[in-house]
Computed example of a mutant assay.
Amino acid sequence: MTITMYQASVPVFQRLLDNCIAILKKAEAHAISSGGDTRQMIEAKLASDMFPLKVQIQILADGARGCVARLAEQALPSPDAGQFAVFNRGYHQDFVESHQTFTSLIAYLHDAIDYLDAIPPAKLEGSETTPVEVTWRGNTRYFHGLPFLRDYALPNFYFHLTISYAILRIAGVPLGKQDFEGTPVYSTGPAGPHQTWQH
């Protein structure tokens, strides 16, 4: 069985963004129940020279949306449209969106999921060789679809998701590996139906 570019991108991004929403909801509930400051948690960093949680989440949403938009050859508002930036911004001033609440961050992730949901699989057919351009501040990097997804977009996506998880874990949010992965799906055998893990 051949895995399509759609299968390797859209469902992966959607599932992990959805997992991230669940993690943020758990973080907000923990902050409130423990008498903590939700704003302080949103501003938390893993290290002083890294982006805070609120920016890590924005990077996730923008990266997933921007990756799929380029693979599907969707028109962008501009070559360097922020909501379609793909892991290529490195300065705090590059982030004009100011998400100061968990509600705002969660809504931003939902918007990205909805965007991905509107892309039909056929739009990514043959995108392995689609020329891809990523532009920011007048600098453009050039890719072809498959290495863009496999070697650039997905590793960056997992990086920022992992950093977000680590920020919240260090902040004391009771997260585990399954929060990151989501509910695993196992097969009963080589040709059997899939089953969801039961708690």
Rank of each mutant, 00 (worst) to 15 (best):
M1S: 06
Q7L: 09
A8Q: 07
S9M: 08
V12I: 14
F13P: 04
Q14I: 13
L17N: 06
C20P: 02
L24P: 09
K26V: 11
A29G: 04
A29C: 01
H30D: 08
H30P: 02
S34E: 15
S34Y: 05
G35Q: 13
T38M: 07
R39T: 03
E43W: 05
A44M: 05
A44F: 02
K45Q: 15
S48M: 11
S48R: 08
D49E: 01
L53W: 13
V55Q: 15
D62Q: 15
G66E: 03
G66T: 04
L71Q: 03
L71Y: 13
E73K: 06
E73C: 05
P79N: 03
A81Q: 13
Q83M: 12
A85S: 15
V86P: 02
F87D: 01
Q93R: 14
D94A: 13
V96G: 04
E97V: 13
E97W: 15
E97D: 15
H99C: 12
H99W: 12
H99D: 11
Q100Y: 10
T103C: 10
A107E: 15
A107T: 11
D111H: 12
D111S: 15
I113V: 14
D117R: 15
A118Y: 07
I119A: 07
A122R: 03
L124H: 05
G126S: 01
S127N: 01
T129N: 09
T129C: 00
T129E: 10
T129D: 05
T130Y: 00
P131K: 02
V132Q: 00
V132L: 01
E133T: 00
V134S: 02
T135N: 01
W136M: 08
G138S: 03
N139R: 09
T140K: 01
R141K: 01
Y142C: 11
H144F: 09
G145K: 13
F148T: 04
L149E: 07
L149Q: 10
R150M: 14
Y152P: 00
P155K: 09
P155E: 12
N156S: 07
F157H: 08
F159C: 00
L161T: 02
I163D: 01
S164I: 03
Y165E: 00
Y165T: 00
R169D: 08
A171M: 04
V173S: 12
L175H: 08
L175E: 04
E181N: 14
G182I: 04
P184Q: 10
V185N: 11
V185A: 05
S187Q: 12
P193N: 03
W197M: 09
H199S: 09
H199C: 04
H199P: 15
